[in-house]
């Protein structure tokens, strides 16, 4: 599904160049739930941003489902994201004035779906995360765990094959975190989603099929036995 070959990402600001990712290669088979671990600043988010097509590598190739998105134009990337990726943020990033239902419906507003079709899909997605009873609530009226479930429903609603999550449980209590991890796991197992999740937490990583460690922009190990506690 995902095949990164020798990708490097550097940012230049004035005379300074930072290279958060250097010559990194990685393969993620379809349907895998992968955890990316590593200390803060090791390039996890940067990698996730490349895989999700909101940023482009400085060099290297990034094949997803047979397409090298590293060569896509901005416009191509935008429409690719709309169809292929769901992004889950650490801080949920829901729109505060919209209800849970309206937040979940957001990705569908730019499709050609009718109102009724949008409604049906958004309701299904909310149902899948167990929040159909809260569809009229605004983010302010939900707990952190519920907000993250709404965010997951939003990532799911357009039915992308790939989900990326940047520390999705980083801001949650243990119980909510467990719930979210169970949800991601079932999305991978039962719905065949490929999931790349960045996490600090070994417990979270344990929910994944495999964990990889990043340090200073390079992968340390690919052996799953070393990481699962």
């Amino acid at each position: 599904m995902i095949s990164c070959k020798a990708i490097t990402k550097s940012y230049t600001k004035g005379a300074n160049t930072v290279t958060p990712l250097e010559n990194l290669s990685l393969k993620v088979p379809r349907g895998e739930f992968l955890a990316l671990m590593g200390p803060s600043g090791s390039g996890k988010t940067t990698l996730l941003n490349l895989i999700s097509g909101i940023d482009t590598p400085t060099s290297g190739s990034l094949e997803i489902d047979g397409e090298d998105i590293a060569r896509f134009s901005r416009k191509q990337l935008t429409s690719w994201r709309a169809r292929k990726v769901g992004y889950i943020f650490q801080l949920y990033h829901l729109i505060p004035v919209l209800t849970a239902f309206e937040n979940v419906e957001l990705p569908l507003l730019i499709t050609s779906l009718s109102r009724a079709e949008r409604r049906k899909k958004a309701e299904e997605a909310l149902d899948l995360v167990g929040l159909s009873g809260r569809s009229d609530h605004t983010p302010g009226e939900l707990s952190g765990g519920q907000e993250q479930r709404v965010a997951i429903a939003r990532a799911l609603v357009a039915d992308p094959a790939l989900l990326v999550a940047d520390e999705p449980t980083g801001d949650l209590d243990r119980e909510s975190a467990t719930h979210i991890l169970g949800l991601l796991r079932s999305l991978s197992r039962e719905h065949g989603k490929t999931i790349v999740m960045v996490t600090h937490d070994a417990r979270a990583a344990a929910a994944a099929d495999r964990a990889l460690h990043l340090e200073k922009g390079k992968l340390l190990t690919t052996d799953p036995n070393l990481t699962v506690a």
């Binding site: 909101i54 416009k75 935008t78 690719w80 990033h93 729109i95 957001l106 730019i110």
Partner: peptide, 15 residues
């Protein structure tokens, strides 16, 4: 941030 999130969701700049 809100607009960056919308763009992440696949909203074109034009939208």
């Amino acid at each position: 941030k809100e607009n960056a999130v919308l763009r992440t969701l696949g909203y074109p700049g034009k939208a």
